[in-house]
Write a protein that binds this DNA or RNA. Structure first.
Length: 437
RNA sequence: GCCCCUAUCGUCUAACGGUUAGGACAUCAGGUUCUCAUCCUGGAAAUCGGGGUUCGAUUCCCCGUGGGGGUGCCA
Protein backbone atom coordinates (compact mmCIF):
# COMPACT_ATOMS: atom_id res chain seq x y z
CA UNK A 1 0.00 0.00 0.00
CA UNK A 2 2.95 2.29 0.32
CA UNK A 3 4.00 3.97 -2.83
CA UNK A 4 5.91 7.15 -3.30
CA UNK A 5 4.19 8.55 -6.35
CA UNK A 6 4.37 12.30 -6.29
CA UNK A 7 2.98 14.57 -8.98
CA UNK A 8 2.63 18.31 -9.14
CA UNK A 9 0.75 21.07 -10.82
CA UNK A 10 3.18 23.90 -11.53
CA UNK A 11 1.43 26.92 -13.00
CA UNK A 12 2.77 30.41 -13.21
CA UNK A 13 0.19 32.70 -11.62
CA UNK A 14 -0.90 35.09 -14.34
CA UNK A 15 -4.19 36.19 -12.85
CA UNK A 16 -6.20 33.79 -14.95
CA UNK A 17 -6.16 30.04 -15.08
CA UNK A 18 -6.42 28.69 -18.61
CA UNK A 19 -8.63 25.66 -19.16
CA UNK A 20 -5.77 23.80 -20.81
CA UNK A 21 -3.72 24.44 -17.75
CA UNK A 22 -6.34 23.42 -15.26
CA UNK A 23 -6.92 20.27 -17.24
CA UNK A 24 -3.31 19.34 -16.59
CA UNK A 25 -4.05 19.88 -12.92
CA UNK A 26 -7.12 17.66 -13.19
CA UNK A 27 -5.15 14.83 -14.78
CA UNK A 28 -2.40 15.12 -12.20
CA UNK A 29 -4.91 15.13 -9.39
CA UNK A 30 -6.76 12.13 -10.76
CA UNK A 31 -3.54 10.24 -11.27
CA UNK A 32 -2.49 10.91 -7.69
CA UNK A 33 -5.87 9.97 -6.28
CA UNK A 34 -6.05 6.84 -8.40
CA UNK A 35 -2.60 5.65 -7.41
CA UNK A 36 -2.74 6.79 -3.82
CA UNK A 37 0.16 9.15 -4.44
CA UNK A 38 0.60 12.79 -3.52
CA UNK A 39 -0.63 15.77 -5.51
CA UNK A 40 1.41 18.90 -4.98
CA UNK A 41 1.02 22.50 -5.99
CA UNK A 42 4.03 24.54 -6.97
CA UNK A 43 3.56 28.15 -7.91
CA UNK A 44 6.15 29.22 -10.45
CA UNK A 45 6.18 32.83 -9.50
CA UNK A 46 9.57 33.87 -10.79
CA UNK A 47 8.04 36.36 -13.19
CA UNK A 48 7.79 39.14 -10.63
CA UNK A 49 5.72 41.39 -12.87
CA UNK A 50 2.84 39.02 -13.38
CA UNK A 51 3.01 37.13 -10.12
CA UNK A 52 0.95 39.38 -7.92
CA UNK A 53 -0.75 38.32 -4.70
CA UNK A 54 -4.08 38.71 -6.49
CA UNK A 55 -2.96 36.38 -9.26
CA UNK A 56 -1.98 33.76 -6.72
CA UNK A 57 -5.29 34.21 -4.94
CA UNK A 58 -7.14 33.66 -8.21
CA UNK A 59 -5.18 30.51 -8.82
CA UNK A 60 -5.89 29.11 -5.39
CA UNK A 61 -9.57 29.96 -5.71
CA UNK A 62 -9.82 28.15 -9.02
CA UNK A 63 -8.21 25.09 -7.49
CA UNK A 64 -10.56 25.18 -4.54
CA UNK A 65 -13.59 25.75 -6.74
CA UNK A 66 -12.78 22.61 -8.71
CA UNK A 67 -12.04 20.76 -5.49
CA UNK A 68 -8.46 20.07 -6.50
CA UNK A 69 -6.98 19.66 -3.07
CA UNK A 70 -3.24 19.23 -2.65
CA UNK A 71 -1.41 17.17 -0.10
CA UNK A 72 1.44 19.38 1.02
CA UNK A 73 1.89 23.11 1.57
CA UNK A 74 2.22 25.16 -1.60
CA UNK A 75 5.78 25.60 -2.76
CA UNK A 76 6.71 28.96 -4.21
CA UNK A 77 9.44 28.81 -6.76
CA UNK A 78 10.99 32.13 -5.78
CA UNK A 79 11.87 30.56 -2.45
CA UNK A 80 14.17 28.12 -4.23
CA UNK A 81 16.26 30.52 -6.29
CA UNK A 82 19.35 29.82 -4.24
CA UNK A 83 18.93 26.12 -4.86
CA UNK A 84 18.62 26.80 -8.58
CA UNK A 85 21.82 28.79 -8.61
CA UNK A 86 23.56 26.21 -6.49
CA UNK A 87 22.64 23.61 -9.05
CA UNK A 88 23.98 25.82 -11.81
CA UNK A 89 27.32 26.08 -10.02
CA UNK A 90 27.36 22.35 -9.58
CA UNK A 91 26.83 21.91 -13.30
CA UNK A 92 29.58 24.40 -14.01
CA UNK A 93 31.93 22.54 -11.70
CA UNK A 94 31.14 19.16 -13.16
CA UNK A 95 31.66 20.44 -16.67
CA UNK A 96 28.02 20.02 -17.72
CA UNK A 97 27.66 23.75 -18.22
CA UNK A 98 29.79 26.65 -19.34
CA UNK A 99 29.73 30.41 -19.36
CA UNK A 100 29.28 32.34 -22.54
CA UNK A 101 28.43 35.76 -23.92
CA UNK A 102 27.06 34.72 -27.27
CA UNK A 103 24.29 37.25 -27.55
CA UNK A 104 26.38 40.12 -26.30
CA UNK A 105 24.12 40.68 -23.30
CA UNK A 106 26.71 39.64 -20.80
CA UNK A 107 27.82 36.32 -19.44
CA UNK A 108 25.20 33.63 -19.05
CA UNK A 109 25.42 29.97 -18.10
CA UNK A 110 24.70 27.39 -20.77
CA UNK A 111 23.97 23.73 -20.29
CA UNK A 112 25.82 21.34 -22.54
CA UNK A 113 23.68 18.79 -24.35
CA UNK A 114 25.18 15.53 -25.62
CA UNK A 115 26.69 15.91 -29.06
CA UNK A 116 26.34 12.35 -30.21
CA UNK A 117 24.19 9.33 -29.66
CA UNK A 118 20.46 9.16 -29.22
CA UNK A 119 18.20 10.63 -26.59
CA UNK A 120 15.04 8.79 -25.76
CA UNK A 121 12.40 8.38 -23.14
CA UNK A 122 9.11 6.59 -22.83
CA UNK A 123 6.19 8.98 -22.73
CA UNK A 124 3.26 7.52 -20.82
CA UNK A 125 0.88 9.06 -23.35
CA UNK A 126 2.82 9.36 -26.55
CA UNK A 127 4.95 6.27 -26.30
CA UNK A 128 8.59 5.96 -27.24
CA UNK A 129 10.09 9.36 -27.95
CA UNK A 130 13.49 9.68 -29.54
CA UNK A 131 15.76 12.33 -30.88
CA UNK A 132 19.25 12.37 -32.27
CA UNK A 133 21.68 14.23 -30.05
CA UNK A 134 22.86 16.26 -33.01
CA UNK A 135 19.34 17.66 -33.32
CA UNK A 136 19.50 19.14 -29.87
CA UNK A 137 21.26 22.28 -28.77
CA UNK A 138 22.85 23.65 -25.67
CA UNK A 139 20.58 26.00 -23.77
CA UNK A 140 20.76 28.82 -21.27
CA UNK A 141 20.08 27.91 -17.66
CA UNK A 142 21.08 31.15 -15.95
CA UNK A 143 20.53 34.49 -17.64
CA UNK A 144 23.19 37.16 -17.83
CA UNK A 145 21.31 39.01 -15.11
CA UNK A 146 21.86 36.05 -12.84
CA UNK A 147 18.32 34.71 -12.83
CA UNK A 148 17.64 31.02 -13.40
CA UNK A 149 15.77 30.01 -16.53
CA UNK A 150 12.60 27.91 -16.44
CA UNK A 151 14.31 24.65 -17.44
CA UNK A 152 16.75 24.77 -14.55
CA UNK A 153 14.26 25.98 -11.96
CA UNK A 154 11.67 23.46 -13.01
CA UNK A 155 14.02 20.50 -12.83
CA UNK A 156 15.65 21.53 -9.57
CA UNK A 157 12.25 22.03 -7.97
CA UNK A 158 11.10 18.66 -9.19
CA UNK A 159 14.16 17.10 -7.59
CA UNK A 160 13.56 19.03 -4.38
CA UNK A 161 9.95 17.91 -4.24
CA UNK A 162 10.72 14.33 -5.18
CA UNK A 163 8.43 14.36 -8.20
CA UNK A 164 8.06 10.93 -9.75
CA UNK A 165 5.68 11.66 -12.63
CA UNK A 166 5.51 14.83 -14.67
CA UNK A 167 2.12 15.20 -16.33
CA UNK A 168 1.93 18.38 -18.38
CA UNK A 169 1.00 19.92 -21.69
CA UNK A 170 2.16 18.78 -25.07
CA UNK A 171 4.09 21.98 -25.57
CA UNK A 172 6.76 20.63 -23.24
CA UNK A 173 7.61 17.55 -25.27
CA UNK A 174 10.78 19.02 -26.74
CA UNK A 175 11.83 20.38 -23.38
CA UNK A 176 11.69 16.91 -21.94
CA UNK A 177 14.89 15.89 -23.68
CA UNK A 178 16.61 18.85 -22.08
CA UNK A 179 15.10 18.22 -18.68
CA UNK A 180 16.10 14.59 -18.61
CA UNK A 181 19.70 15.55 -19.33
CA UNK A 182 19.53 18.08 -16.53
CA UNK A 183 18.27 15.46 -14.09
CA UNK A 184 21.07 13.14 -15.06
CA UNK A 185 23.73 15.84 -14.87
CA UNK A 186 22.50 16.74 -11.40
CA UNK A 187 22.75 13.12 -10.39
CA UNK A 188 19.01 12.64 -10.05
CA UNK A 189 16.67 10.02 -11.40
CA UNK A 190 14.45 11.60 -14.10
CA UNK A 191 10.73 11.26 -13.44
CA UNK A 192 8.33 9.50 -15.76
CA UNK A 193 6.70 11.81 -18.27
CA UNK A 194 3.21 12.06 -19.69
CA UNK A 195 2.35 14.76 -22.20
CA UNK A 196 -1.24 15.75 -22.60
CA UNK A 197 -2.55 16.96 -25.95
CA UNK A 198 -3.55 20.57 -26.31
CA UNK A 199 -7.05 21.95 -26.34
CA UNK A 200 -7.63 23.69 -29.65
CA UNK A 201 -10.29 25.88 -31.26
CA UNK A 202 -12.32 24.97 -34.31
CA UNK A 203 -9.44 26.12 -36.48
CA UNK A 204 -7.12 23.63 -34.84
CA UNK A 205 -5.18 26.43 -33.18
CA UNK A 206 -4.45 26.46 -29.46
CA UNK A 207 -7.58 27.53 -27.65
CA UNK A 208 -7.21 31.09 -26.43
CA UNK A 209 -9.29 33.90 -25.03
CA UNK A 210 -10.08 34.97 -28.56
CA UNK A 211 -12.04 31.77 -29.05
CA UNK A 212 -14.43 32.44 -26.18
CA UNK A 213 -14.13 31.73 -22.52
CA UNK A 214 -10.70 30.33 -21.88
CA UNK A 215 -10.29 30.84 -18.17
CA UNK A 216 -11.71 28.98 -15.22
CA UNK A 217 -13.03 32.18 -13.68
CA UNK A 218 -15.10 32.96 -16.76
CA UNK A 219 -16.89 29.64 -16.66
CA UNK A 220 -17.56 30.16 -13.01
CA UNK A 221 -19.01 33.58 -13.72
CA UNK A 222 -21.22 32.29 -16.48
CA UNK A 223 -22.74 29.79 -14.17
CA UNK A 224 -21.05 26.53 -14.99
CA UNK A 225 -20.73 24.09 -12.14
CA UNK A 226 -17.22 23.02 -11.17
CA UNK A 227 -18.16 19.36 -11.40
CA UNK A 228 -19.51 19.83 -14.91
CA UNK A 229 -16.41 21.67 -16.10
CA UNK A 230 -14.21 19.07 -14.44
CA UNK A 231 -16.10 16.23 -16.09
CA UNK A 232 -16.09 17.91 -19.48
CA UNK A 233 -12.38 18.71 -19.39
CA UNK A 234 -11.57 15.16 -18.36
CA UNK A 235 -13.33 13.88 -21.46
CA UNK A 236 -11.14 16.05 -23.65
CA UNK A 237 -8.37 13.58 -24.30
CA UNK A 238 -9.46 10.78 -22.05
CA UNK A 239 -12.28 8.22 -22.03
CA UNK A 240 -13.01 5.42 -19.59
CA UNK A 241 -13.24 2.87 -22.39
CA UNK A 242 -16.90 2.13 -21.90
CA UNK A 243 -19.76 4.45 -22.78
CA UNK A 244 -19.84 6.39 -19.55
CA UNK A 245 -19.62 10.16 -19.90
CA UNK A 246 -21.15 11.73 -16.83
CA UNK A 247 -19.23 10.30 -13.93
CA UNK A 248 -18.85 10.99 -10.26
CA UNK A 249 -15.50 11.99 -8.84
CA UNK A 250 -15.18 8.52 -7.33
CA UNK A 251 -15.85 6.81 -10.65
CA UNK A 252 -13.31 9.05 -12.34
CA UNK A 253 -10.66 8.29 -9.77
CA UNK A 254 -11.31 4.61 -10.08
CA UNK A 255 -11.29 4.58 -13.88
CA UNK A 256 -8.47 7.01 -14.55
CA UNK A 257 -5.27 5.91 -16.15
CA UNK A 258 -2.65 7.70 -18.19
CA UNK A 259 -2.50 5.05 -20.86
CA UNK A 260 -6.05 5.85 -21.84
CA UNK A 261 -5.12 9.44 -22.63
CA UNK A 262 -5.22 10.38 -26.28
CA UNK A 263 -2.14 11.72 -27.96
CA UNK A 264 -3.87 14.13 -30.32
CA UNK A 265 -5.39 17.54 -29.76
CA UNK A 266 -9.04 18.01 -28.81
CA UNK A 267 -11.41 20.77 -29.87
CA UNK A 268 -13.34 22.62 -27.24
CA UNK A 269 -17.08 22.16 -27.79
CA UNK A 270 -19.08 24.66 -25.79
CA UNK A 271 -22.41 23.09 -26.80
CA UNK A 272 -21.51 19.85 -25.15
CA UNK A 273 -20.32 21.63 -22.04
CA UNK A 274 -23.67 23.45 -21.87
CA UNK A 275 -25.51 20.20 -22.19
CA UNK A 276 -23.44 18.56 -19.52
CA UNK A 277 -23.82 21.54 -17.22
CA UNK A 278 -27.59 21.29 -17.64
CA UNK A 279 -27.41 17.66 -16.59
CA UNK A 280 -25.44 18.56 -13.49
CA UNK A 281 -27.79 21.41 -12.62
CA UNK A 282 -30.83 19.19 -12.98
CA UNK A 283 -29.24 16.75 -10.56
CA UNK A 284 -28.38 19.40 -7.96
CA UNK A 285 -30.01 19.24 -4.54
CA UNK A 286 -32.87 21.77 -4.40
CA UNK A 287 -31.41 23.89 -1.64
CA UNK A 288 -28.08 24.17 -3.40
CA UNK A 289 -29.79 25.24 -6.58
CA UNK A 290 -31.86 27.73 -4.65
CA UNK A 291 -28.82 29.33 -3.09
CA UNK A 292 -27.10 29.89 -6.41
CA UNK A 293 -30.38 30.89 -8.03
CA UNK A 294 -30.92 33.63 -5.47
CA UNK A 295 -27.37 34.84 -5.78
CA UNK A 296 -27.81 35.25 -9.53
CA UNK A 297 -31.12 37.03 -9.21
CA UNK A 298 -29.73 39.32 -6.57
CA UNK A 299 -26.55 40.07 -8.52
CA UNK A 300 -28.69 41.05 -11.48
CA UNK A 301 -30.34 43.71 -9.36
CA UNK A 302 -33.67 41.93 -9.30
CA UNK A 303 -35.71 41.75 -6.09
CA UNK A 304 -35.26 38.30 -4.60
CA UNK A 305 -38.84 37.89 -3.47
CA UNK A 306 -41.22 36.62 -6.17
CA UNK A 307 -44.40 38.69 -6.58
CA UNK A 308 -47.05 36.08 -6.22
CA UNK A 309 -45.42 32.96 -4.84
CA UNK A 310 -42.29 31.68 -3.12
CA UNK A 311 -38.80 31.11 -4.43
CA UNK A 312 -39.31 27.40 -3.97
CA UNK A 313 -42.35 27.57 -6.24
CA UNK A 314 -40.34 29.28 -8.95
CA UNK A 315 -37.50 26.85 -8.73
CA UNK A 316 -39.63 23.82 -9.43
CA UNK A 317 -40.14 24.53 -13.14
CA UNK A 318 -36.91 26.50 -13.58
CA UNK A 319 -34.24 24.10 -12.36
CA UNK A 320 -34.79 21.39 -14.98
CA UNK A 321 -34.63 24.00 -17.73
CA UNK A 322 -31.45 25.73 -16.62
CA UNK A 323 -28.31 25.17 -18.68
CA UNK A 324 -26.13 27.75 -16.98
CA UNK A 325 -26.82 29.95 -13.99
CA UNK A 326 -25.96 32.96 -16.09
CA UNK A 327 -29.20 32.45 -17.99
CA UNK A 328 -31.34 32.69 -14.90
CA UNK A 329 -32.02 36.41 -14.53
CA UNK A 330 -33.21 36.79 -18.11
CA UNK A 331 -35.31 33.64 -17.90
CA UNK A 332 -37.04 34.36 -14.61
CA UNK A 333 -37.26 38.09 -14.17
CA UNK A 334 -41.03 38.21 -14.73
CA UNK A 335 -41.59 36.22 -11.55
CA UNK A 336 -39.97 39.00 -9.53
CA UNK A 337 -40.99 42.31 -11.06
CA UNK A 338 -43.61 43.95 -13.21
CA UNK A 339 -40.78 45.63 -15.06
CA UNK A 340 -39.92 42.65 -17.22
CA UNK A 341 -38.62 43.18 -20.76
CA UNK A 342 -40.46 42.02 -23.85
CA UNK A 343 -38.65 40.05 -26.50
CA UNK A 344 -39.10 41.86 -29.79
CA UNK A 345 -39.28 38.65 -31.72
CA UNK A 346 -41.88 37.20 -29.38
CA UNK A 347 -44.00 40.33 -29.55
CA UNK A 348 -43.82 40.40 -33.33
CA UNK A 349 -44.75 36.78 -33.63
CA UNK A 350 -47.37 36.40 -30.93
CA UNK A 351 -48.84 39.78 -30.11
CA UNK A 352 -48.87 41.53 -33.47
CA UNK A 353 -51.69 39.29 -34.61
CA UNK A 354 -55.19 40.28 -35.72
CA UNK A 355 -57.03 38.70 -32.81
CA UNK A 356 -54.37 38.95 -30.13
CA UNK A 357 -55.87 42.01 -28.45
CA UNK A 358 -59.28 40.45 -28.20
CA UNK A 359 -57.83 37.23 -26.93
CA UNK A 360 -55.93 38.97 -24.16
CA UNK A 361 -58.93 41.01 -23.07
CA UNK A 362 -61.24 38.07 -23.17
CA UNK A 363 -58.82 35.91 -21.21
CA UNK A 364 -58.45 38.64 -18.63
CA UNK A 365 -62.14 39.15 -18.15
CA UNK A 366 -62.83 35.45 -17.88
CA UNK A 367 -60.05 35.06 -15.34
CA UNK A 368 -61.76 37.74 -13.28
CA UNK A 369 -64.65 35.47 -12.59
CA UNK A 370 -62.48 32.63 -11.34
CA UNK A 371 -62.58 32.40 -7.55
CA UNK A 372 -59.91 29.84 -6.96
CA UNK A 373 -57.18 30.55 -9.51
CA UNK A 374 -55.81 27.04 -9.88
CA UNK A 375 -53.98 25.58 -12.85
CA UNK A 376 -57.08 23.60 -13.73
CA UNK A 377 -59.30 26.67 -13.62
CA UNK A 378 -56.95 28.64 -15.83
CA UNK A 379 -56.65 25.74 -18.19
CA UNK A 380 -60.40 25.44 -18.52
CA UNK A 381 -60.67 29.06 -19.52
CA UNK A 382 -57.89 28.84 -22.04
CA UNK A 383 -59.34 25.69 -23.52
CA UNK A 384 -62.71 27.29 -23.99
CA UNK A 385 -61.15 30.22 -25.75
CA UNK A 386 -58.99 27.88 -27.76
CA UNK A 387 -62.08 26.39 -29.34
CA UNK A 388 -63.26 29.80 -30.32
CA UNK A 389 -59.96 31.06 -31.71
CA UNK A 390 -58.74 27.99 -33.51
CA UNK A 391 -56.55 25.96 -31.20
CA UNK A 392 -54.55 26.13 -27.99
CA UNK A 393 -51.62 27.79 -29.66
CA UNK A 394 -53.68 30.76 -30.78
CA UNK A 395 -54.49 31.59 -27.16
CA UNK A 396 -51.58 30.22 -25.21
CA UNK A 397 -48.85 32.00 -27.14
CA UNK A 398 -50.15 35.58 -26.85
CA UNK A 399 -51.02 35.04 -23.20
CA UNK A 400 -47.58 33.67 -22.45
CA UNK A 401 -45.81 36.59 -24.10
CA UNK A 402 -48.10 39.07 -22.40
CA UNK A 403 -47.42 37.79 -18.89
CA UNK A 404 -43.73 36.86 -19.28
CA UNK A 405 -42.38 38.86 -22.17
CA UNK A 406 -40.83 35.79 -23.75
CA UNK A 407 -42.03 32.84 -25.79
CA UNK A 408 -40.56 30.01 -23.81
CA UNK A 409 -40.56 28.88 -20.21
CA UNK A 410 -42.51 26.77 -17.75
CA UNK A 411 -45.90 25.36 -18.57
CA UNK A 412 -48.34 28.25 -18.99
CA UNK A 413 -50.86 27.23 -16.34
CA UNK A 414 -48.18 26.67 -13.77
CA UNK A 415 -46.69 30.02 -14.71
CA UNK A 416 -50.04 31.79 -14.34
CA UNK A 417 -50.66 30.21 -10.98
CA UNK A 418 -47.28 31.39 -9.75
CA UNK A 419 -47.82 34.90 -11.05
CA UNK A 420 -51.26 35.04 -9.45
CA UNK A 421 -54.71 35.96 -10.64
CA UNK A 422 -54.79 39.74 -10.19
CA UNK A 423 -51.30 40.21 -11.53
CA UNK A 424 -52.01 38.01 -14.52
CA UNK A 425 -55.10 39.97 -15.39
CA UNK A 426 -53.26 43.25 -15.06
CA UNK A 427 -50.45 42.04 -17.26
CA UNK A 428 -52.81 40.81 -19.92
CA UNK A 429 -54.56 44.17 -20.10
CA UNK A 430 -51.33 46.11 -19.97
CA UNK A 431 -50.03 44.18 -22.98
CA UNK A 432 -53.03 44.92 -25.15
CA UNK A 433 -51.58 48.14 -26.61
CA UNK A 434 -48.65 46.07 -27.85
CA UNK A 435 -50.97 44.03 -30.03
CA UNK A 436 -51.72 47.01 -32.25
CA UNK A 437 -50.72 46.17 -35.77
C1' G B 1 14.63 25.44 -43.25
C1' C B 2 15.47 21.55 -39.58
C1' C B 3 13.60 18.32 -35.46
C1' C B 4 9.51 15.98 -32.77
C1' C B 5 4.41 14.65 -32.36
C1' U B 6 -0.34 13.79 -34.52
C1' A B 7 -4.78 12.15 -37.99
C1' U B 8 -12.16 7.54 -36.81
C1' C B 9 -19.07 10.93 -38.04
C1' G B 10 -19.54 18.51 -37.83
C1' U B 11 -17.39 17.88 -32.44
C1' C B 12 -15.63 14.66 -28.11
C1' U B 13 -14.50 9.67 -28.45
C1' A B 14 -14.83 3.59 -28.44
C1' A B 15 -13.11 -0.40 -31.23
C1' C B 16 -5.35 -2.64 -28.23
C1' G B 17 -5.56 -7.46 -36.98
C1' G B 18 -11.52 -10.24 -38.05
C1' U B 19 -17.52 -5.56 -35.46
C1' U B 20 -23.49 -4.37 -39.89
C1' A B 21 -16.99 0.70 -37.21
C1' G B 22 -20.24 1.62 -31.12
C1' G B 23 -21.63 5.83 -27.74
C1' A B 24 -22.31 11.08 -26.52
C1' C B 25 -23.05 16.39 -28.04
C1' A B 26 -24.86 18.89 -32.21
C1' U B 27 -28.18 18.15 -36.38
C1' C B 28 -32.71 16.27 -39.14
C1' A B 29 -37.68 13.69 -39.05
C1' G B 30 -41.74 11.81 -36.14
C1' G B 31 -44.39 11.11 -31.25
C1' U B 32 -45.80 13.41 -26.29
C1' U B 33 -46.70 18.67 -24.50
C1' C B 34 -49.58 25.21 -24.54
C1' U B 35 -44.00 27.16 -25.72
C1' C B 36 -39.10 25.91 -24.16
C1' A B 37 -36.46 22.15 -21.75
C1' U B 38 -37.21 17.06 -20.74
C1' C B 39 -38.83 12.27 -22.54
C1' C B 40 -39.62 8.38 -26.50
C1' U B 41 -38.80 6.57 -31.74
C1' G B 42 -36.18 6.86 -36.10
C1' G B 43 -32.57 9.12 -39.86
C1' A B 44 -28.27 11.21 -41.94
C1' A B 45 -23.19 11.33 -40.61
C1' A B 46 -16.42 8.91 -40.05
C1' U B 47 -11.57 5.43 -40.49
C1' C B 48 -6.92 11.97 -44.77
C1' G B 49 -4.40 10.00 -49.69
C1' G B 50 -1.00 6.34 -51.76
C1' G B 51 1.95 2.19 -51.19
C1' G B 52 3.28 -2.09 -48.52
C1' U B 53 3.10 -6.47 -44.40
C1' U B 54 -0.98 -10.09 -43.70
C1' C B 55 -5.71 -15.04 -45.37
C1' G B 56 -7.56 -10.35 -43.37
C1' A B 57 -6.11 -3.76 -41.85
C1' U B 58 -9.22 1.94 -38.50
C1' U B 59 -5.45 -0.95 -36.05
C1' C B 60 1.47 -2.59 -37.95
C1' C B 61 5.44 -0.26 -41.50
C1' C B 62 6.87 3.46 -45.34
C1' C B 63 5.89 7.91 -48.33
C1' G B 64 2.86 12.02 -48.96
C1' U B 65 -0.79 15.70 -47.20
C1' G B 66 -3.19 18.40 -43.27
C1' G B 67 -2.72 20.05 -38.16
C1' G B 68 0.15 21.02 -33.74
C1' G B 69 4.65 21.74 -30.99
C1' G B 70 9.86 23.05 -30.76
C1' U B 71 14.02 25.53 -32.69
C1' G B 72 20.57 29.20 -27.27
C1' C B 73 18.86 34.33 -22.40
C1' C B 74 9.37 33.05 -22.51
C1' A B 75 7.21 29.49 -19.51
Amino acid sequence: MCNNIRVRFAPSPTGNVHIGNIRAAIFNWLFARHTGGKFLLRVEDTDLERSTPEAIKTLLESMEWLKLDYDEPVVYQTANVNEHLKAARKLLDSGHAYKSDKGGKGECIIFKMPSEGRLEYNDLVKGRMRKKAEDTQDFVIVRSDGSPVFHLANVVDDILQGITHVIRGDDHVENTFKHIELFKALGAQPPAYAHLPMIVNNMGKPYSKRDGSAFVGEFREQGYLPDALFNFLLLLGWAPGDDREIMSREEMIKAFSLDRCKASAARFDLKKLRWMNGEYIAAMPKDEFKKEFLRRVSDAGIPTEPLGCTVDDVIVPVQPRTKTFGDIPANCIYFFTEDYPFSEAAVAKRLKQPEAGRILEETASRFESIHDFTEEAAEDVIKELAEKYGGMGAVVHPVRVAVSGVSEGPGLFEMLRLIGKERTIARLRRAIPQTAL
